[in-house]
């Protein structure tokens, strides 16, 4: 702080307006929504205070809730598992491609497309062969007819089809982040390492990775929080169907609040989601602070 040579008061004065707005549009709604979670309320009429009844139903009597939590967490796990792949792609780009900018931008392209566009695109790809679905037609052509599925409507595979689209869309995003991180590692270190006989993946293990742990962490947090909140892609492609087979926490919350008109109950799901996000962020930070210590 002292490096900045500004008094704490000044800092406070500058931070205050932003802080007020932030508290107003982030924390106040969270508190209000948590309070709504304690109500029996359809969203428009009279409300009744029922204490923790909503949470009790949510945790013990809701057949959709825990499966949707499981799917959400699986989503998060897959998204995080994608980061090492993105890192590998970034390393390969840096090492073997002379002008990688074009490739990086191409990988990044799906990210700037609206989720609705991506969703519709993949819906068409996933269609049954009789409706012109590309994936099934390709499978049939190369003789793997037994592998064809109605990808979005078989409860057993529908969720994985959705995971894949999300991974496809965000691979470029994480590759870009990792690639930028790698570029920031000073070239001299690699040169010094080469003299000592460390090249290729050995250099990556001992130089690249420890140097980009903070960047790696950003990617992990973004992937995790992003997939906990996944909503739009599920809505566009399956709407949580068939029969809740692709419901995640946020779509379940939406269904309850707006379609079943149980606003209080929906709010209790929202409260759960907030707590889950906070806990996850805390946990990830903890793990990474340990990791950083070990490598530095």
């Amino acid at each position: 702080m002292n490096v900045l040579k500004v008094s704490r008061l000044t800092i406070a004065a500058f931070v205050l307006p932003c802080l007020i707005i932030y508290v107003g549009i982030v924390f106040v709604p969270i508190i209000v929504s948590m309070y709504s979670g304690l109500l029996d309320w359809n969203g428009i009429g009279e409300s009744k205070f029922i204490g923790l009844e909503n949470f009790r139903n949510l945790f013990f009597h809701d057949p959709v809730f825990w499966p949707s939590v499981r799917r959400t967490l699986m989503f998060a796990v897959f998204s995080m598992a994608e980061i090492p792949v993105a890192l590998l792609v970034a390393i390969l780009l840096k090492r073997y491609v002379r002008r990688p900018n074009f490739l990086v931008s191409s990988y990044f392209l799906p990210v700037i497309l609206s989720v609705v566009v991506v969703g519709q695109l993949w819906k068409t790809i996933y269609n049954p062969a009789s409706m012109g679905g590309m994936l099934n037609q390709v499978l049939t052509t190369i003789g793997l007819e037994s592998w064809t599925h109605t990808w979005l409507t078989e409860p057993a595979v529908a969720m994985y089809s959705l995971y894949f689209v999300a991974l496809w869309q965000y691979l470029g995003y994480h590759t870009l982040i990792q690639y930028t991180g790698i570029l920031n590692v000073p070239e001299e270190i690699y040169e010094a390492a080469r003299i000592d006989g460390a090249e290729g993946f050995t250099a990556d293990r001992y130089i690249t990775f420890p140097n980009i742990i903070p960047i790696f962490k950003i990617s992990i947090v973004l992937a995790f929080i992003g997939s906990l909140q996944s909503f739009d892609m599920v809505m566009v492609m399956t709407g949580g169907g068939p029969a809740h087979a692709t419901d995640v926490i946020s779509t379940h919350m939406y269904n309850m609040s707006f379609l079943s008109m149980k606003y209080g109950y929906g709010s209790s799901i929202a409260a759960f989601l907030v707590v889950l996000c906070l806990a996850a962020t805390f946990l990830i930070n903890l793990i990474f602070s340990k990791l950083e210590k070990r490598f530095s």
Binding site: P155, G241, A243, M261
Partner: peptide, 19 residues
């Protein structure tokens, strides 16, 4: 029926298409 019951019904019928 009220919206809560209706949603369960709608899902239940949708499920018949899947299994």
């Amino acid at each position: 029926m009220n919206p809560g019951t209706a949603q369960v019904h709608l899902t239940s019928i949708q499920n018949l298409f899947a299994q």
